[in-house]
């Protein structure tokens, strides 16, 4: 924070750099200010893991939808009104008793924003990006998750063109639940593959 008491305004260095980027691009006609404002609002408030949770809950309750999702995730996700705006290709990964899927971006921080919103800090951290590949079972332990020895862990490296959504297994004790109740227990981490949904999550909400 600035401690000077001058009567004029102050902009931080990063604020200045971003304002300069924005105003130069606007002046040259590459950025539409209204569209940019809309995007800021969208990512700040409307896009979040609740979108992905609805996709997972639909897949749990509608086997036809699940088949479409695993065959071609992009159009199936768009059926619920969510779409990536940058043309990235989406793949839905099905967790089974035999295979657990975990998603990372070893290069930088590629992430399925359209369904999960913004990535958590740990997803962008070198600790996760390196360890997810070298020791996925250790990562799960860090997140308090342990899987049966027999379950194989598959790690998927995201790219700018290819993004992954993990569809966790529907937990025991959720028979007869509504799609809405199911969506409420699907956590962000479970859709990255570093967590599992639990039926008793609902009680905590």
């Amino acid at each position: 924070m600035s401690t000077d008491h001058a009567d004029h305004s102050h902009l931080s260095d990063m604020d200045v750099r971003v304002r300069a980027l924005q105003s130069v691009l606007e002046e040259k006609g590459f950025v539409d200010p209204a569209a940019l404002d809309e995007l800021v609002t969208l990512y700040e408030h409307e896009v979040g893991p609740q979108n992905g949770a609805r996709v997972v809950a639909r897949a749990w309750t509608d086997s036809d939808y699940a088949a479409r999702l695993f065959a071609s995730a992009g159009p199936a996700i768009a059926e619920l009104g969510y779409s990536g705006r940058q043309g990235e290709h989406m793949v839905a990964l099905q967790n089974t008793p035999e295979t657990h899927n975990m998603v990372v971006c070893t290069l930088c921080s590629c992430y399925p924003w359209a369904v999960l919103g913004l990535p958590p800090t740990w997803y962008k951290a070198p600790a996760y990006r390196a360890k997810a590949v070298a020791d996925p079972r250790g990562v799960l332990a860090d997140f308090g998750v342990s899987l049966p020895e027999a379950t194989k862990i598959r790690v998927w490296d995201s790219t700018a063109e290819m993004r992954y959504l993990v569809v966790p297994m529907r937990p025991e004790g959720t028979d007869g639940w509504s799609e809405e109740a199911l969506a409420a227990i699907v956590t962000r981490d479970s859709m990255i593959g570093t967590g599992l949904p639990h039926a008793d999550e609902a009680a905590a909400r």
């Binding site: 990063m14 304002r19 691009l25 940019l36 995007l39 705006r85």
Partner: peptide, 15 residues
């Protein structure tokens, strides 16, 4: 706020 603007700028330019 500058983080949100930077993020949206990049998304807009790619879109």
């Amino acid at each position: 706020p500058w983080e949100a603007t930077a993020f949206a700028l990049k998304a807009h330019l790619v879109a």
